[in-house]
Simulated scan of single mutants.
Amino acid sequence: MTQSCGFVAIVGRPNVGKSTLMNRILGQKVSITSRRPQTTRHQVMGIKTDEETQFIYVDTPGMHIMSKDRNKAINRFMNQAATQALRDIDCVVFIIDRTRWAPEDQVVLDKLEHVSAPVILAVNKVDWLEDKASLLPWLDEVGAKRDFAAILPISAKHGTNVPELEAEVAKHLPEGIHHFPDDQITDKSSRFLAAELVREKVMRQLGDELPYQMTVEIEEFKTDQRGTLHISALMMVERQGQKKILIGEAGDRIKKIGREARLEMERAFESKVMLNLWVKVKRGWSDDERALKSLGYDLD
């Protein structure tokens, strides 16, 4: 049988469910998620091989409007990473949220003007709609904004219409040999996933208490003779007050973050994990391009 293989960019404004969709398609967590916008900071590749067809999905940071509080080097990096993912791809899945068209949706649509690959519009979170009758006229309205290859209402969280979305994507993948082994699901390393899982737990627990100026760097990642994985993670913030928030009273916050991250790592890596967390203040790292590169925020 003839093989097909292609790259599929998943794009949209922040917090519309891009990472949730990719995790749903893959059947396991590759991209971290939280209710906070801009949880995803990097391009994350998710690979799904279904017999003769290999889908190479690229989850992207949410494209956002640069503003006074979002005008740092890390914001520019995220927008550039999302835009770069649109190069040399075979299909685009553009996700929007139910029946609301936000200014940042228009930002994404404008970026897609120069993309020749077919664009599938996925209207996410339709399970949250109270007025289901409003969906059909809304689909007609957004369908007039571009000549989309297809428009599908979906629920990334619950899987509604996700198989139909995959079938639609498959129509646009070119013939060609598979780029990755059939059992590979991502191009990211275990160290990267470990850092992301710690950051996810911080974002989920602290919500609006902690600004976006927090990142995680893995300093140790090794397995001992008994098969236990030892991981040391450095959580970096920009101010002393942020460090106090992360640690919590009598260290209760950092202990809870560590416990939740360790349990998820044990599921992901299928081994016992010994996790050590540290917090360090590094002023201005999120607006320092050299510091960002040293922390792995590099488009190369």
Rank of each mutant, 00 (worst) to 15 (best):
F55G: 01
E196M: 06
L246Q: 07
G207F: 04
G251C: 00
H178R: 10
T20M: 09
I95V: 14
P14L: 04
K280E: 02
R24S: 03
I231Q: 10
E220Y: 02
V237L: 06
D127F: 03
E196N: 08
L165A: 11
L86A: 10
H172T: 02
L275Q: 03
Q28S: 13
K280A: 04
D90W: 04
V8Q: 09
R70T: 10
V216T: 15
F221S: 06
L109E: 14
K256T: 11
D224T: 00
E289C: 01
I247H: 06
E166V: 12
D50K: 14
D110P: 01
E264A: 15
K244W: 07
S19L: 04
D59G: 09
D287F: 01
L135I: 00
L206I: 01
V198D: 08
G46F: 01
R24D: 00
T223P: 02
V123E: 07
A9Q: 13
S286C: 12
K125H: 05
H178A: 02
F94P: 09
V126G: 01
D59P: 13
L206N: 10
S286I: 07
V279N: 06
E289R: 10
E104H: 00
K243I: 07
R283F: 04
I96P: 02
V119D: 06
G27K: 01
V202Y: 11
K282F: 09
E260R: 13
G6S: 04
R259I: 13
L275W: 07
T160W: 14
M1I: 07
D50N: 11
D252M: 06
Q54E: 03
W285A: 02
N71W: 03
G258M: 11
H179D: 11
S294K: 15
H64R: 12
F7H: 07
A133N: 05
R290A: 15
L277D: 01
Y57M: 06
A81L: 11
T160G: 00
N75T: 13
D50G: 04
V202L: 14
S189W: 11
V123F: 10
D300C: 02
G12D: 12
R36W: 00
C91F: 04
Q3H: 14
A122Y: 07
F180D: 09
G248E: 13
E104Q: 03
E266N: 13
L86W: 13
D97Y: 08
M45A: 12
E266F: 08
S34F: 01
P174T: 02
L21G: 05
M78V: 08
L165F: 08
T20G: 09
A291M: 12
W138A: 05
I154E: 00
W128V: 02
M1Q: 13
L139I: 10
D88Q: 07
S189P: 10
P153A: 04
H172Q: 10
K256I: 10
W285H: 06
D298R: 12
S189A: 06
E130T: 05
V44H: 08
